[in-house]
């Protein structure tokens, strides 16, 4: 597992990509983290009200745990990780092997839209981070 060195340029590109896609689509917050729970980017209207550090640590652990669960039942990994609440929903998407994109959205945005956007975004972000 390599260390991440973020330059202003990389971060700006990633933020632009996320804002142009997910935030434009109306999601509340999009959080890009790595597998160890570090936050790489935090965008969206609720970004500042969020305990992002805890969320990132738990999300990384959650994905690690579910991926272990997947292996227990003979799966490589689960393709859809989603929790549905009364007013808020959260979607986790893997970006390559190292990164995780967390999307928090309300009832006004459909899960399908988020899934489409995350898939598209995944390629863009991979290019940004892997060059």
């Amino acid at each position: 597992m390599q260390d991440f060195i973020l330059t202003a340029e990389i971060l700006e590109k990633a933020r632009n990509a996320i804002e142009g896609s997910l935030i434009q689509a109306g999601v509340r917050t999009a959080l890009l983290i790595d597998g160890a729970g570090n936050i790489l980017s935090n965008c969206g209207r609720d970004a500042d009200d969020l305990d992002a550090i805890s969320l990132a640590a738990l999300a990384a652990a959650n994905l690690g745990a579910t991926s272990q669960i997947a292996k227990l039942i003979g799966e490589e990994d689960f393709s859809l990780l989603f929790h549905k609440g009364k007013n808020g929903n959260i979607h986790f998407g893997r970006i390559g092997d190292e990164l995780i994109l967390i999307t928090i959205f309300g009832e006004d945005v459909s899960l399908g839209l988020v899934r489409c956007r995350v898939t598209d975004l995944s390629e863009t972000l991979l290019q940004i981070f892997e060059g």
């Binding site: 804002e19 896609s21 935030i23 434009q24 209207r45 500042d48």
Partner: peptide, 24 residues
Amino acid sequence: SRAPAASTPTKDESLTASMLSSDG
């Protein structure tokens, strides 16, 4: 006790749910 927020300020855009004509 609030965690040191590692976030940067967000652009205050008007967010609309209509987004279909954009990006492909």
